[in-house]
Design a protein around this nucleic acid. Structure first.
Lengths: 224, 224
DNA sequence: CAATCCCGTCACAATCGCGTCACACCCTTG
DNA sequence: CAAGGGTGTGACGCGATTGTGACGGGATTG
């Protein structure tokens, strides 16, 4: 059975106990300033309150992104009201997403289920190789046969996501979701430009072209 | 209670008996060159040794993928040492995953539990083989003896449909319907062109001609 | 506050996919 | 061997899809 690990920075009015639903086991846990209390395997979802007792939500967000145990978590920021300025700050601090509070059980499940529905998930792998390509999550660096590939942040995330799902056609929508770009909505054609830039960067490092276009569908990272 | 069926190609040093843990029943069984000894319901996990007494692990892997009873199994390859080249070969032969041996009870459970929680599920027949031909639905790619066949989307669908109905004469109408071309109506002669293009692509990949013309009827995908 | 970087969008050119046609070739039948 | 239907395939052209240079706004740096 799949396990979905959900972490929250605050107690909620309604009880959010562990439960099983639709073939998945949902576990809930408190998330403190020092990170998660327990280590888990599998996808992690963190909901961070804008205002926290001991720490500003934005700072918490940054910590999650810097902490090796939680870099792969999908971070949702919980805003008190819909302030465009706050939304932007949240995303810049590393959040993948946000909801307008207060946080309810329904809101949590909506988020998790919606993003899981495509079944494209991050794997918590620190460093991995695919053919000549090496991706080092800790150093945020990619190499082609030891030769560093000069990537901008967005390109790195794109390459990472593609490489995490090799030999599998990813639609432009998958890629947009995979990079956690919900807000503002991204034009699908923009993905073409991302791919173009990524290809150029790989080629500049002496690499081949592992990114295959599947016309009218999307792109694949080709192994072999 | 959920059942997790685990198949191994070799005896292990430590005993791996059936047992119950965490709401799941784990059953273990030997996996021989002819496939599983018993049919099971529910998820199957196969651990295939790189070196087997009677059959190379890679060949075993391909057989599992070609066998209707086991196409949906999650196949983990057991490597003796961490050779990137071997890993690639394993994945290309259809393995979903690999571990560096020797295989222990802990390694098996780690794998199964980790992947179950990560929600890595095999979609029905994502990949199948017929003789030298391999069709990978996820990557939308076909190979002839490991050599990729360069197919355009329509040709891929055609090949897939033919390969799904081997040894059976398909009329031009069958093929048009099989590819879901209702609108606009397709001229039956167009199918001839499709077949011609598909044959050329297979030959370009060093393949033979598995597509036989049945005069005044249609075409067959010939097995053997 | 100037210089630089990153990234989303646009517009246009290049490319691709594919249905159709036309004609040569093949096989069958008488 | 002549006749006639069936099949293979090169060529063509229309649409749709994709690649990419250019631009501008916002963020970051110094």
């Amino acid at each position: 059975m799949d396990v979905v690990n959900i972490f929250l920075t605050s107690e909620l009015g309604e009880s959010l106990d562990d439960f099983v639903h639709d073939q998945r086991r949902f576990t809930f846990d408190r998330l403190g300033p020092d990170g998660p209390r327990r280590l888990v395997e599998g996808p992690m979802w963190a909901f961070v309150d804008w205002v926290m007792p001991e720490l500003a939500g934005l700072e918490m967000c940054r910590r999650l992104r810097a902490d090796a145990r939680t870099v792969d978590a999908h971070v949702t920021m919980v805003l008190e009201e819909d302030d465009p300025e706050d939304r932007r700050r949240a995303l810049r601090a590393g959040a993948d997403d946000y909801v307008i509070g207060p946080l309810t059980r329904t809101a949590v499940l909506d988020r998790v289920l919606a993003l899981q529905s495509r079944g494209v998930e991050r794997q918590a792998t620190r460093r991995f190789e695919l053919g000549a390509l090496t991706i080092d999550m800790a150093a945020l660096q990619a190499r082609w046969n030891e030769q560093p590939i000069l990537l901008r942040p967005n390109e790195f995330r794109l390459l990472r996501f593609l490489a995490e799902n090799p030999n599998r056609v990813l639609t432009r929508e998958d890629l947009i979701n995979g990079l956690g770009k919900r807000e503002p909505p991204i034009d699908e054609r923009t993905v073409d430009v991302w791919i173009g830039r990524l290809r150029r960067a790989i080629k500049a490092a002496g690499g081949g072209n592992p990114l295959r276009t599947v016309r009218s569908l999307g792109y694949v990272f080709d192994l072999g």
